[in-house]
């Protein structure tokens, strides 16, 4: 059974359809890349898949549950437990240290303190930032910030990880390191990944690549 499914989804802004009648399905643990030029609708689709936006047509199902009909409260629960998000611009909370950023989703879920510590220590070790655990985001490099963002997104063991141009704001070597980390950790955690990118190289870590242009997949339903 598909862990995440889009059926005939479309979204318009004003009278312009940014994406229209898209179908896609994502299996558990699968990594899929959405590849395409700027403005083709990748981020719009990602926002619909993550329940951050609602489609004007079609439906999105997360583990069989229709996201487009979920209440805001239910969406928040799903985002805390089943979805993880990584942004191009990191969006770390500047007033929390690196490890506090990572443990934030667990605190939102009221995990016991010991469990939070254990999980956080493991994740920070996984992303190689043990020595930077108490640093403020402003003290981290772009690559380090994105590694913290990856760890934070995976903290609550989501079923699906949505990554929007996670290397778009990084130099090539940091980008490569972050991609490798994404592949390794999603593999390790068993999370599926939707990776939005315009880089063929980045798409290379995925099992499947869906190419987009003008709001449509180029090779039919995926």
């Amino acid at each position: 059974m598909a862990v995440l499914q889009a059926q005939g989804v479309g979204r318009r802004f004003g009278s312009r359809w940014v994406i229209r009648s898209l179908d896609m399905a994502l299996e558990a643990g699968e990594r899929v890349a959405l590849l395409g030029p700027s403005g083709c609708g990748k981020t719009t689709l990602l926002n619909l898949l993550g329940g951050l936006d609602r489609p004007d047509e079609g439906m999105v199902l997360l583990e069989g549950e229709p996201l487009h009909r979920a209440s805001p409260a239910r969406l928040s629960v799903l985002r805390r437990t089943r979805l993880g998000t990584i942004f191009q611009f990191f969006h770390l909370i500047p007033t929390l240290t690196a490890e506090e950023n990572i443990e934030l989703p667990l605190r939102m879920l009221d995990w016991p303190e010991a469990a939070i510590r254990e999980r956080c220590t493991a994740l920070i070790r996984s992303v190689g930032l043990t020595h930077r655990a108490t640093a403020w985001p402003a003290e981290l490099s772009g690559g380090e910030m994105q590694r913290v963002a990856v760890a934070r997104a995976l903290a609550a063991r989501p079923a699906v990880l949505l990554a929007d141009e996670p290397t778009g704001n990084l130099d090539r070597s940091s980008g490569r390191a972050v991609l490798a980390l994404l592949a390794e950790l999603t593999e390790q955690e068993g999370s599926a990944l939707v990776l939005v990118t315009h880089s063929e190289a980045a798409a290379g870590i995925c099992h499947r690549v869906l190419r987009m242009e003008d709001g449509q997949f180029l090779a039919g339903p995926a």
Binding site: S76, R79, L83, T85, F89, H91, I93, L104, M108
Partner: peptide
């Protein structure tokens, strides 16, 4: 606003 958006993506409700 970036921080607010980030928290929303992490599952914080509007009430939170």
């Amino acid at each position: 606003r970036g921080e607010v958006w980030s928290l929303r993506a992490l599952g914080a409700t509007q009430v939170d």
